[in-house]
């Protein structure tokens, strides 16, 4: 009887340890996006400042780096120079697009004027585009291949290394 209890105990403890150990290396805030491998939800939004309409479907033919951000987001300030520098290096072979949600056009204009820009920044007034892309917290960046399919999603501020690694998935 005691032996049975011991074996059952060991099995239960081993299962718990296994589950905890398996989750140890994972980022609890990370959510796998069901959109990876699927067509990017189509949208057509107005660019802040220029008023130019940008239709994501018309950008097919080259990889697209689609970055969701906002002026009220701290890490977005940190990430912005990386995006601008990489856009200057990689465009026009790669198209960079920014989408800002729940923000004020004046604040965005000021942000871009102070920190520079190299690509269109679109205003997603009610955040519907962000919802369709499953955006939780900003910044989040999607890497879309020339066929219009989402190949990778990156959560948090991008570094040049991370950007290039993720972009490589959309270049293949």
């Amino acid at each position: 009887m005691n032996r049975t209890v011991l074996i059952v105990g060991i099995v239960i403890v081993a299962a718990i340890v296994f589950i905890l150990f398996a989750g140890l290396g994972k980022d609890p805030a990370h959510i796998d996006s069901p959109l990876v491998g699927r067509p990017a939800p189509p949208f057509s939004l107005k660019a802040v400042g220029t008023g130019e309409m940008v239709d994501i479907e018309k950008l097919r033919g080259k990889p697209v780096v689609l970055n969701f951000w906002a002026t009220w987001c701290g890490p977005c300030y940190e990430e912005h120079p990386t995006l601008v520098a990489n856009a200057r290096n990689l465009q026009p072979g790669v198209q960079f697009v920014g989408v800002v949600f729940n923000d004020d056009e004046d604040k965005i204009m000021r942000f871009l004027a102070e920190r520079g820009t190299a690509y269109p920044t679109l205003l997603d007034a009610q955040g519907k585009t962000a919802i369709a892309y499953g955006v939780g917290g900003v910044p989040e960046t999607f890497f879309i291949n020339p066929e219009g399919k989402i190949m990778a999603k990156f959560e948090g501020p991008l570094t040049t290394e991370a950007l290039q690694a993720e972009l490589a998935k959309a270049m293949r």
């Binding site: 189509p42 949208f43 939004l45 008023g51 309409m53 997603d124 519907k128 369709a132």
Partner: peptide, 15 residues
């Protein structure tokens, strides 16, 4: 015209 051109992803395309 600008307003008419704005197109957000629509649920109908998915559902």
């Amino acid at each position: 015209i600008a307003l008419l051109q704005i197109k957000v992803p629509d649920a109908a395309q998915v559902l």
